[in-house]
Design a protein around this nucleic acid. Structure first.
Length: 271
DNA sequence: ACTTCGACCTGTTGGC
DNA sequence: TGCCAACAGGTCGAAG
Protein backbone atom coordinates (compact mmCIF):
# COMPACT_ATOMS: atom_id res chain seq x y z
CA UNK A 1 0.00 0.00 0.00
CA UNK A 2 2.18 2.79 1.14
CA UNK A 3 4.62 4.86 -0.70
CA UNK A 4 5.33 8.41 0.32
CA UNK A 5 2.05 9.84 -1.04
CA UNK A 6 0.01 7.25 0.83
CA UNK A 7 1.98 7.90 4.01
CA UNK A 8 1.49 11.63 3.61
CA UNK A 9 -2.22 11.15 2.97
CA UNK A 10 -2.39 9.10 6.16
CA UNK A 11 -0.47 11.74 8.10
CA UNK A 12 -2.82 14.50 6.99
CA UNK A 13 -5.83 12.35 7.83
CA UNK A 14 -4.89 11.38 11.37
CA UNK A 15 -3.25 14.62 12.52
CA UNK A 16 -6.37 16.66 13.39
CA UNK A 17 -7.79 13.82 15.48
CA UNK A 18 -4.78 13.10 17.65
CA UNK A 19 -2.66 16.25 17.93
CA UNK A 20 -3.18 17.99 21.29
CA UNK A 21 -4.93 14.90 22.56
CA UNK A 22 -3.83 12.75 25.45
CA UNK A 23 -3.32 9.03 25.10
CA UNK A 24 -5.50 7.08 27.51
CA UNK A 25 -4.53 3.55 26.67
CA UNK A 26 -2.53 1.44 24.25
CA UNK A 27 -3.78 -2.00 23.23
CA UNK A 28 -1.33 -4.34 21.55
CA UNK A 29 -3.04 -7.45 20.23
CA UNK A 30 -0.16 -8.76 18.17
CA UNK A 31 3.28 -7.47 19.00
CA UNK A 32 5.15 -9.44 16.33
CA UNK A 33 5.58 -6.94 13.53
CA UNK A 34 8.84 -6.45 11.65
CA UNK A 35 10.36 -5.99 15.08
CA UNK A 36 8.50 -6.91 18.26
CA UNK A 37 6.65 -3.96 19.75
CA UNK A 38 8.32 -2.93 23.00
CA UNK A 39 6.25 -3.18 26.18
CA UNK A 40 7.48 0.35 26.87
CA UNK A 41 4.95 1.62 24.32
CA UNK A 42 2.09 0.33 26.44
CA UNK A 43 3.51 1.45 29.74
CA UNK A 44 5.05 4.82 28.86
CA UNK A 45 2.83 6.40 26.21
CA UNK A 46 -0.43 6.61 28.20
CA UNK A 47 -1.01 10.00 29.89
CA UNK A 48 1.26 11.68 27.36
CA UNK A 49 -0.05 14.14 24.78
CA UNK A 50 0.73 13.91 21.06
CA UNK A 51 2.19 17.24 20.01
CA UNK A 52 2.86 16.65 16.33
CA UNK A 53 2.67 14.09 13.56
CA UNK A 54 5.52 14.42 11.12
CA UNK A 55 6.99 12.28 8.39
CA UNK A 56 10.55 11.28 7.56
CA UNK A 57 10.64 9.20 4.41
CA UNK A 58 7.89 6.65 4.88
CA UNK A 59 8.16 6.77 8.66
CA UNK A 60 5.49 8.61 10.64
CA UNK A 61 6.67 10.24 13.85
CA UNK A 62 4.20 10.87 16.67
CA UNK A 63 5.92 13.25 19.06
CA UNK A 64 4.79 12.89 22.67
CA UNK A 65 5.92 14.69 25.85
CA UNK A 66 8.79 12.40 26.73
CA UNK A 67 9.29 10.19 23.74
CA UNK A 68 7.99 9.46 20.28
CA UNK A 69 6.32 6.72 18.30
CA UNK A 70 8.11 5.77 15.09
CA UNK A 71 5.67 4.04 12.81
CA UNK A 72 6.14 2.38 9.41
CA UNK A 73 3.32 0.90 7.36
CA UNK A 74 5.50 -1.65 5.58
CA UNK A 75 3.83 -3.24 2.59
CA UNK A 76 0.25 -3.67 3.79
CA UNK A 77 -0.08 -1.44 6.84
CA UNK A 78 -2.88 1.04 7.37
CA UNK A 79 -3.93 3.55 10.02
CA UNK A 80 -7.49 4.57 10.72
CA UNK A 81 -9.33 6.83 13.12
CA UNK A 82 -12.26 5.00 14.68
CA UNK A 83 -14.56 5.24 17.68
CA UNK A 84 -12.65 3.95 20.72
CA UNK A 85 -14.94 0.95 21.17
CA UNK A 86 -14.90 -0.15 17.52
CA UNK A 87 -14.77 -3.93 17.22
CA UNK A 88 -11.32 -5.22 16.28
CA UNK A 89 -10.88 -7.64 13.41
CA UNK A 90 -8.28 -10.14 12.36
CA UNK A 91 -5.31 -7.94 11.46
CA UNK A 92 -6.02 -5.03 13.80
CA UNK A 93 -2.79 -5.28 15.79
CA UNK A 94 -2.60 -2.04 17.77
CA UNK A 95 -5.02 0.60 19.09
CA UNK A 96 -3.93 3.90 20.60
CA UNK A 97 -6.95 5.33 22.43
CA UNK A 98 -7.27 9.06 23.06
CA UNK A 99 -9.12 11.34 25.46
CA UNK A 100 -11.56 12.34 22.71
CA UNK A 101 -12.89 8.78 22.62
CA UNK A 102 -11.22 8.11 19.29
CA UNK A 103 -8.82 5.34 18.51
CA UNK A 104 -5.85 5.29 16.15
CA UNK A 105 -5.88 1.73 14.81
CA UNK A 106 -2.95 0.02 13.10
CA UNK A 107 -3.93 -2.80 10.74
CA UNK A 108 -1.34 -4.82 8.83
CA UNK A 109 -1.99 -8.27 7.32
CA UNK A 110 1.59 -8.95 6.28
CA UNK A 111 3.14 -7.44 9.41
CA UNK A 112 6.09 -5.88 7.60
CA UNK A 113 5.23 -2.66 9.40
CA UNK A 114 6.86 -1.39 12.56
CA UNK A 115 5.91 0.51 15.69
CA UNK A 116 8.83 1.66 17.78
CA UNK A 117 8.82 3.66 21.00
CA UNK A 118 11.82 5.87 21.61
CA UNK A 119 12.59 8.28 24.47
CA UNK A 120 15.12 10.11 22.31
CA UNK A 121 14.80 12.36 19.32
CA UNK A 122 13.28 10.00 16.74
CA UNK A 123 15.44 11.52 14.00
CA UNK A 124 18.47 10.16 15.86
CA UNK A 125 17.14 6.62 15.82
CA UNK A 126 19.41 4.13 13.98
CA UNK A 127 16.67 3.47 11.42
CA UNK A 128 16.32 7.16 10.57
CA UNK A 129 19.78 8.58 11.03
CA UNK A 130 21.16 7.23 7.76
CA UNK A 131 18.22 8.15 5.54
CA UNK A 132 18.84 10.17 2.39
CA UNK A 133 17.23 13.35 1.14
CA UNK A 134 13.53 14.11 1.25
CA UNK A 135 12.40 14.09 -2.38
CA UNK A 136 10.21 17.17 -1.99
CA UNK A 137 12.89 19.21 -0.23
CA UNK A 138 14.95 21.86 -2.00
CA UNK A 139 18.15 19.95 -1.25
CA UNK A 140 17.03 17.18 -3.54
CA UNK A 141 18.42 18.30 -6.86
CA UNK A 142 19.80 16.90 -10.08
CA UNK A 143 23.26 17.90 -8.97
CA UNK A 144 22.89 15.95 -5.74
CA UNK A 145 21.86 12.74 -7.54
CA UNK A 146 24.57 13.23 -10.13
CA UNK A 147 27.27 13.57 -7.48
CA UNK A 148 26.05 10.64 -5.42
CA UNK A 149 25.81 8.34 -8.42
CA UNK A 150 29.33 8.62 -9.84
CA UNK A 151 30.94 5.17 -10.18
CA UNK A 152 27.67 3.46 -9.26
CA UNK A 153 26.89 0.50 -11.52
CA UNK A 154 23.47 -0.20 -10.07
CA UNK A 155 20.46 0.58 -12.24
CA UNK A 156 18.96 4.04 -12.03
CA UNK A 157 15.70 2.53 -10.80
CA UNK A 158 17.33 0.75 -7.88
CA UNK A 159 19.40 3.85 -7.20
CA UNK A 160 16.38 6.14 -6.75
CA UNK A 161 14.64 3.46 -4.67
CA UNK A 162 17.59 3.33 -2.25
CA UNK A 163 16.47 5.14 0.90
CA UNK A 164 20.05 6.01 1.79
CA UNK A 165 20.08 8.22 -1.29
CA UNK A 166 16.52 9.55 -1.38
CA UNK A 167 13.58 8.44 0.72
CA UNK A 168 10.02 7.72 -0.27
CA UNK A 169 10.39 6.67 -3.90
CA UNK A 170 8.85 3.20 -4.02
CA UNK A 171 8.19 0.86 -6.89
CA UNK A 172 5.11 2.54 -8.35
CA UNK A 173 6.50 6.05 -8.45
CA UNK A 174 10.00 4.99 -9.50
CA UNK A 175 8.45 3.41 -12.59
CA UNK A 176 6.28 6.45 -13.23
CA UNK A 177 9.03 9.04 -12.70
CA UNK A 178 11.44 7.23 -15.03
CA UNK A 179 8.77 7.11 -17.70
CA UNK A 180 8.04 10.81 -17.26
CA UNK A 181 11.75 11.62 -17.56
CA UNK A 182 12.25 9.32 -20.56
CA UNK A 183 15.00 7.30 -18.88
CA UNK A 184 15.43 3.55 -19.29
CA UNK A 185 15.23 1.99 -15.81
CA UNK A 186 18.16 -0.36 -16.54
CA UNK A 187 20.63 2.46 -17.22
CA UNK A 188 23.61 2.43 -14.86
CA UNK A 189 23.18 5.25 -12.35
CA UNK A 190 26.77 6.33 -12.91
CA UNK A 191 26.23 6.82 -16.64
CA UNK A 192 23.43 9.37 -16.44
CA UNK A 193 24.20 12.99 -17.25
CA UNK A 194 23.59 15.83 -14.86
CA UNK A 195 21.01 17.17 -17.25
CA UNK A 196 19.07 13.93 -17.22
CA UNK A 197 19.27 13.88 -13.44
CA UNK A 198 17.69 17.32 -13.42
CA UNK A 199 14.83 16.01 -15.53
CA UNK A 200 14.48 12.97 -13.32
CA UNK A 201 14.36 14.97 -10.10
CA UNK A 202 11.72 17.21 -11.63
CA UNK A 203 9.69 14.13 -12.59
CA UNK A 204 10.00 12.55 -9.15
CA UNK A 205 8.74 15.71 -7.47
CA UNK A 206 5.89 16.10 -9.94
CA UNK A 207 4.74 12.50 -9.69
CA UNK A 208 4.83 12.52 -5.89
CA UNK A 209 3.05 15.87 -5.59
CA UNK A 210 0.38 14.81 -8.07
CA UNK A 211 -0.18 11.56 -6.18
CA UNK A 212 -0.46 13.38 -2.84
CA UNK A 213 -3.00 15.74 -4.39
CA UNK A 214 -5.04 12.72 -5.47
CA UNK A 215 -4.85 11.10 -2.02
CA UNK A 216 -2.36 8.43 -3.07
CA UNK A 217 -2.76 5.38 -5.26
CA UNK A 218 -5.29 2.70 -4.41
CA UNK A 219 -4.22 -0.67 -5.80
CA UNK A 220 -5.99 -3.29 -3.77
CA UNK A 221 -7.57 -1.84 -0.70
CA UNK A 222 -5.65 1.24 0.34
CA UNK A 223 -7.89 3.67 2.13
CA UNK A 224 -6.93 6.92 3.77
CA UNK A 225 -7.56 7.23 7.49
CA UNK A 226 -11.15 8.31 6.87
CA UNK A 227 -11.87 5.46 4.47
CA UNK A 228 -11.52 7.22 1.13
CA UNK A 229 -9.53 5.54 -1.66
CA UNK A 230 -6.73 7.31 -3.53
CA UNK A 231 -7.36 8.29 -7.11
CA UNK A 232 -3.85 8.45 -8.54
CA UNK A 233 -4.27 4.98 -10.06
CA UNK A 234 -6.10 6.73 -12.89
CA UNK A 235 -2.94 8.68 -13.67
CA UNK A 236 -0.53 5.75 -13.81
CA UNK A 237 1.18 5.56 -17.18
CA UNK A 238 3.29 2.39 -16.86
CA UNK A 239 2.96 0.69 -13.48
CA UNK A 240 0.75 -2.38 -13.82
CA UNK A 241 0.36 -1.79 -17.56
CA UNK A 242 2.84 -4.25 -19.08
CA UNK A 243 1.80 -5.28 -22.58
CA UNK A 244 -0.45 -2.28 -23.04
CA UNK A 245 0.35 0.49 -25.54
CA UNK A 246 2.50 3.42 -24.42
CA UNK A 247 0.36 6.54 -23.99
CA UNK A 248 2.88 8.52 -26.06
CA UNK A 249 3.89 6.23 -28.92
CA UNK A 250 1.67 3.12 -28.69
CA UNK A 251 4.70 0.83 -28.39
CA UNK A 252 3.96 -2.21 -26.23
CA UNK A 253 5.13 -1.55 -22.67
CA UNK A 254 7.79 -4.02 -21.55
CA UNK A 255 8.13 -5.67 -18.13
CA UNK A 256 11.41 -6.79 -16.59
CA UNK A 257 12.64 -7.37 -13.05
CA UNK A 258 15.18 -5.16 -11.35
CA UNK A 259 16.20 -5.91 -7.80
CA UNK A 260 13.37 -8.47 -7.61
CA UNK A 261 10.85 -5.73 -8.33
CA UNK A 262 8.50 -5.50 -11.27
CA UNK A 263 9.66 -2.81 -13.69
CA UNK A 264 7.59 -1.53 -16.60
CA UNK A 265 8.77 0.88 -19.26
CA UNK A 266 8.40 1.95 -22.86
CA UNK A 267 11.35 0.60 -24.87
CA UNK A 268 10.98 3.47 -27.35
CA UNK A 269 10.34 6.53 -25.14
CA UNK A 270 12.82 5.39 -22.48
CA UNK A 271 16.00 4.54 -24.33
C1' DA B 1 32.04 0.78 -0.17
C1' DC B 2 29.02 -1.43 -3.20
C1' DT B 3 25.86 -5.23 -4.86
C1' DT B 4 22.97 -9.17 -4.45
C1' DC B 5 19.88 -11.88 -2.21
C1' DG B 6 17.19 -14.02 1.48
C1' DA B 7 14.18 -12.97 5.01
C1' DC B 8 10.09 -11.32 7.27
C1' DC B 9 4.27 -12.41 6.54
C1' DT B 10 -0.57 -13.01 4.55
C1' DG B 11 -3.66 -12.51 0.78
C1' DT B 12 -4.71 -12.50 -4.08
C1' DT B 13 -4.20 -13.90 -8.76
C1' DG B 14 -3.46 -16.71 -12.68
C1' DG B 15 -2.39 -21.03 -14.89
C1' DC B 16 -3.41 -25.80 -15.27
C1' DT C 1 -13.91 -25.70 -8.58
C1' DG C 2 -9.39 -26.78 -6.60
C1' DC C 3 -4.58 -26.60 -6.08
C1' DC C 4 -0.24 -24.40 -6.16
C1' DA C 5 3.20 -21.28 -7.57
C1' DA C 6 4.16 -16.66 -8.19
C1' DC C 7 3.60 -12.19 -6.89
C1' DA C 8 2.27 -7.81 -4.11
C1' DG C 9 2.87 -0.95 -2.22
C1' DG C 10 9.20 -2.22 1.85
C1' DT C 11 13.64 -2.54 3.52
C1' DC C 12 16.84 -4.63 6.63
C1' DG C 13 20.95 -7.23 7.24
C1' DA C 14 24.10 -10.98 5.92
C1' DA C 15 27.23 -12.52 2.66
C1' DG C 16 30.11 -12.00 -1.33
Amino acid sequence: MPELPEVETTRLGITPHIVQHKVIRVIVRHKQLRWPISDDLTTELPQQTIHSVTRRGKYLLLQANRGAVILHLGMSGRLRILPANHLAEKHDHVDIIFDNNLCLRFTDPRRFGAIIWTRDNPLHHPLLIKLGEEPLAENFTGKFLYQRSRQRKTSIKQFIMDSHIVVGVGNIYANEALFAAGINPKTAAGHISQNNYRRLVHSIKQVLLAAIAQGGTTLRDFRSSDGKPGYFIQELKVYGKAGMPCVNCKTKLKEIRLGQRSTVYCPKCQN
